[in-house]
Design a protein around this nucleic acid. Structure first.
Length: 423
RNA sequence: GGAGAGAUGCCUGAGUGGCCGAAAGGAACAGUUUGCUAAACUGUCGUACUGGCAACGGUACCGAGGGUUCGAAUCCCUCUCUCUCCGCCA
């Protein structure tokens, strides 16, 4: 959520930057300023009446204490009108605040000045490529067939006990999952992230805090009886740890990582592109989350991107980094890099990580602030990234590393899997 | 699932209708002092909105939302959450 004060003071700039996103409702900006004018005026008026009423009530108290009952009663009559007045105005204030809030949440974050303009994924900019595209033999298989061939991931069994998109990992497939999780967590710790283990269900307030609610209600699994949501990413609980928190400036940066399963309903997505591990309802992910001083959030974004790339390099996966264009970024992001790995048998790039700087967009909703020794609290910047999501990593490992002797495990991972081949 | 208790500032905790935005202690921060890392003393020490160039004001907030009253942290209602005991159980 953008800050109204910022919108007021930088109206033209806000409009320009929304245009980078191809935002369709620029008229909201002026409507918001208008509503805020109304809000201020109403509040000022309400405050002045409340001040009068408070003064009168105080006077009555003084008179009562002095035993001047008659005078007190007289004053009471005069104050009767205050209540009706304030009631009407405070109702109006509430109404205006709700309208303002409702419009404010419709505005996406402002893209950073380095974000390319664009409306669709085609306009994303490939900013880096790494590694050789592997040449596979003629009879190369896509990962879902490899999974069946080596009996390491069983989609049918998952269908039976839960449904499509809930695979069962078996034997070396299961061990590979565990190995990847530990590999990612160990690397994150080495890079200075503190490991957290949050709940994998969250309440409504948390869903709102990171922006999943109300917009993406249908994307999360909802446990109606307890009104809890299964998390779509560890970003939700880990960022919400800092909801309504004022950190001390020297506590920044906060660097956390967490492994969690993630649950996504992915309502309405079908077809060849979601076969196998390409898109699941439940998957594992290690997430990195930082809360930083606004002055260096873009440096941190680069650091996080470099860190995620280092993981892909260790796993010997060819990848590319995309700088997302305005129109392809998530609603809440100011700048996002997507990392995509090459899946050789499918011959396509698959997104395995998304690293974003949200600037104050999340922290404004979360009321996540920091305070120096002097001065007022100010909003911190939040960032997060996948480091990494497992299924597509597994997909590309399987596809890219298929050999006559089985699936080769990259050297960096062998200490974790304790086997060199899936065969 | 049954029974009870509670929700106050960074923490502990007082406050049961006006003198309470809130005692006291602790923590933290700043300074003074004492010939070492420690102690003592003094001061500072919530947030948001809002008016003003500023000095300095106003309003709201004691879990949330309603109500009673001239006036509510304090009384009433509803909700949420937490804790304790019992039951069940990894």
């Amino acid at each position: 959520m953008l800050q109204v004060s910022y919108i007021r003071e930088n109206r033209d700039e806000v409009l320009n930057r929304l245009a980078v996103r191809n935002f369709k409702q620029p008229e909201l900006v002026d409507q918001i300023i208008q509503l805020d004018d109304d809000r201020r005026q109403t509040q000022t008026y309400l405050d002045s009446i409340s001040a009068e009423a408070n003064a009168a009530a105080k006077k009555i108290g003084d008179l009562m204490r002095q035993g001047l009952k008659v005078e007190a009663e007289g004053l009471k009559e005069q104050t009767n009108s205050f209540k009706e007045q304030t009631k009407g105005i405070s109702d109006k204030l509430t109404a205006v605040e709700i309208l303002l809030q409702n419009e404010l949440v419709l505005l996406p974050n402002l893209p950073h000045s380095s974000v390319p303009k664009g409306a669709s994924p085609e306009e994303n900019v490939v900013s880096f490529e790494y590694g050789q595209i592997p040449q596979l033999p003629e009879n190369a298989l896509p990962h879902w067939e490899l999974a069946a061939k080596y009996d390491i991931i069983d989609f049918e069994l998952g269908n039976k006990i839960a449904g499509a998109g809930f695979p069962v990992y078996k034997g070396k497939g299961a061990k590979l999952q565990r190995a990847l999780i530990n590999f990612f967590l160990d690397n994150a710790e080495e890079a200075g992230y503190r490991e957290m283990q949050p709940p994998i269900v969250v309440n409504e307030a948390s869903g709102f805090g990171t922006g999943q609610l109300p917009d993406k209600e249908g994307q999360m699994y909802h446990i109606g009886i307890d009104n809890l949501y299964l998390i779509p990413t560890a970003e939700v609980p880990v960022t919400n740890l800092y909801r309504d928190v004022i950190l001390k400036e020297d506590e920044l940066p906060v660097r956390n990582c967490a492994y969690t399963p993630c649950f996504r309903r992915e309502a309405g997505s079908y077809g060849a592109h979601v076969r196998g591990l390409n898109r699941l309802h439940q998957f594992d992910k290690v997430e990195i989350v930082q809360v930083v001083h606004p002055d260096n959030s873009y440096k941190v974004l680069e650091d996080m991107s470099t860190y995620v790339q280092s993981l892909l390099q260790k796993l010997e996966l060819p990848y590319r980094v995309l700088t997302l264009c305005g129109g392809d970024m998530s609603f809440t992001s100011a700048k996002t890099y997507d990392m995509e790995v090459w899946c050789a048998a499918q011959a396509r790039w698959l997104e395995v990580s998304s690293v974003s700087n949200f600037e104050t967009y999340q922290s404004n909703r979360l009321k996540l602030r920091f305070k120096g020794k002097e001065g007022k609290p100010q909003l911190a910047h939040t960032l997060n990234g996948s480091a990494l999501a497992l299924p597509r990593i597994v997909a590309s490992l399987l596809e890219n590393n298929q050999t006559g002797k089985g699936i080769r495990i990259p050297g960096a991972l062998v200490p974790y899997t304790k086997f060199e081949f899936i065969d």
